[in-house]
């Protein structure tokens, strides 16, 4: 029988809120987010780091939270899909996904939104090739991706506009900037 791991105390900021928790060292970040914090927008679709349903931002970079231990996030900042909308207003990336019918069942969507945040923070004007590369690790079984390509291209324009105007979305994408 595997050894039970020892408890560890961590402090993580998730969507701007600080959380202090006693966790088992083997706890995955995705389970910490879903089970300890009950933020169930982050999903699990595989067990080999393939599907990207679990993608979140950790210190501004997209990570597959099923492949990161919660202890690795200690002292860091995590953004999940729940942190995108502000005061009920959709983030421009979310709005672009909506307008382009870029989701069907929506199971992959949170991960795709977070990968898009990561992309646009680094590359405000991605080509379709850039977009495809950026979401290569996000599997969607419903949409055939085409509307997602279009949504992300449109999101890029919207985020740039929001950044220029200093409105919602410009800042959230900026928070995904690499540190």
């Amino acid at each position: 029988m595997p050894e039970r791991s020892d408890g560890v105390s961590i402090s993580v900021t998730v969507n701007g809120r600080r959380h202090q928790a006693e966790i088992e060292a083997r706890l995955l970040l995705v389970d910490f987010i879903r089970e300890n914090l009950n933020l169930t927008g982050t999903h699990i679709g595989c067990d080999t780091s393939f599907c990207g349903a679990c993608t979140v931002l950790l210190n501004g970079s997209s990570v597959k939270s099923c492949t990161v231990l919660a202890v690795h996030a200690a002292g860091g900042e995590v953004t999940t899909v729940e942190g995108l909308a502000k005061d009920g207003e959709l983030h421009p990336i979310q709005q672009a996904f909506k307008d382009h019918y870029a989701l069907q069942c929506g199971y992959c969507t949170p991960g795709l939104l977070m990968s898009t945040c990561h992309l646009l923070a680094r590359n405000p004007n991605p080509t379709e090739k850039d977009i495809r590369k950026a979401i290569a690790g996000n599997c969607c079984r419903c949409t055939g991706y085409q509307n997602i390509y279009d949504a992300i291209a449109d999101a890029a324009a919207r985020v740039s506009a929001a950044r220029a105007a200093g409105t919602h979305g410009g800042r959230a994408a900026a928070s995904a900037e690499a540190r």
Binding site: R34, L39, T40, G41, L90, G106, L113
Partner: peptide, 15 residues
């Protein structure tokens, strides 16, 4: 459906 799914507020069984 988008209203909830885009915000991570979908309710899947595991949730």
């Amino acid at each position: 459906e988008e209203a909830r799914l885009l915000r991570g507020q979908g309710k899947f069984v595991d949730d």
